[in-house]
Design a protein around this nucleic acid. Structure first.
Lengths: 229, 229
DNA sequence: GAAGGCCTTCACGGAATCTCCACAACCCGC
DNA sequence: GCGGGTTGTGGAGATTCCGTGAAGGCCTTC
């Protein structure tokens, strides 16, 4: 009775086995790949519920793997990085992973993160169970009511605009590439020009004010990171 | 996989069979008796979760059956009466049934009542408080009696309409997709075109006034959220 | 059978939304 | 400062979505 299918892409056999064993003992069914190309292939074949990706991989790196699989279908991704700096870099690159775990990490920690991500995604997928409204920088987004207010005034957002803004506002400061946003909001990466994202960003800015969404030149967009005021 | 056991005591074979068939198709296991004495006997033997009792019965009448089985063990009872007057009389007699359904009734309506009674009893068994009628914006919905009034005037809602409106009114402001409503009201998400929901929404609006249910374009419907007045 | 209640489905027209294009403005490395 | 790539702007179709009226099926009663 598998709770979920997890793909692990990690080239160090010791670590890969450790992760797999622990996750399996938690009731997940796990498969492992050890380089970039076969990681992409694995994701295609097993359609996992979540992917754990090492950044450093033979073939091509985890960033590239993440981009490719996100393009086909949005799958939650947790990235493993060697250093804190590396995490920062990834956040800035707009890879759009769901979580980042820095080595060394305990198996317990990884399992906790996996469960947290799955819980969040499942909730969003079923659509029903409530979520606390997001409040940042004068903006309030209530997913249950699909309502947005800026400094108390209600703003009407179209379905796509709401989802797009919600995705960004969920993690202020995290940069998403246009592809990553397409994957999350549209559910698939291709079949639309990526400038479509720009159009929607524009109308969101017009409605909620231009300074809430930051453009990261050459990479993508992110929600403005604001210290608590 | 029985959701519950139901005893039906009804002397008219046509009606008895109709009820039994419908309840069985809803997943209940059903047994039938056709007169007073054997009704009491049936209840002793099968220990049903709910009893449906016709008032007019050979042997002794439904009132007497109800008294006898209640004496031994409390079982939820729904009484079938021929006339509204009769219902009033029964209520006056203190028979203590959990609900009264007046003939003619639709099979669907009876099923809805059965489920409502079972839900209520189960809740009481768990020590939770009973449903209070919902009162919002001039609308009142009484789940126990399945009755709706708008500004004091009773409006007749079909079983589906009632469930649909009740689902929405339970959480004003929360937006439900058509699929979500299908899942909650119909019990399964698929097998019907989603525009069916629209049709019922439309007839509800005609009956209770159009501004109580809000359309959220591209998403679904929600009950109008009213600031406390 | 006929009539009526209830549920489901259809097609249509208007409205809201999404996508894309062409051009101007901008950013960055050189 | 210059040039190439990147992003903002405005708007024009194309597409999707929703309210409406109505028809048909199933069931029950008369």
């Amino acid at each position: 009775m598998a709770e979920g299918k997890i793909a692990v892409v990690e080239d160090e056999p010791t670590i890969a086995r450790a992760i797999a064993t622990r996750l399996e003992s938690e009731g997940f069914s796990v498969e492992v790949a050890s380089d970039g190309p076969s990681g992409v292939e694995l994701c295609r074949r097993m359609t996992p519920d979540l992917v754990i990706l090492d950044v450093m991989l033979p073939g091509f790196d985890g960033i590239e793997v993440c981009r490719r699989i996100q393009k086909e279908r949005h799958v939650p991704v947790i990235m493993l990085t060697a250093l804190d700096d590396e995490t920062d870099k990834l956040v800035g690159l707009g890879v759009g992973a769901d979580d980042y775990v820095t080595k060394p990490f305990s198996a317990r920690e990884l399992v906790a993160r996996v469960k947290a991500v799955l819980r969040r995604v499942e909730r969003a997928g079923r659509g029903e169970p409530p979520d606390a409204p997001i409040r940042v920088a004068g903006l309030e987004l209530d997913a249950d009511r699909r309502r947005a207010t800026v400094r108390g005034d209600e703003v009407h957002l179209t379905p796509l605009e709401f989802d797009l803004l919600y995705t960004l506002a969920e993690r202020p400061g995290v940069v998403y590439s246009r592809d990553a946003l397409m994957g999350r909001v549209w559910g698939h990466g291709d079949s639309y020009g990526s400038r479509t994202v720009d159009s929607h960003i524009r109308s969101i800015r017009r409605k909620v004010g231009g300074d809430l969404i930051r453009t990261v030149h050459g990479i993508g967009y992110s929600f403005t990171e604001e210290p608590a005021t």
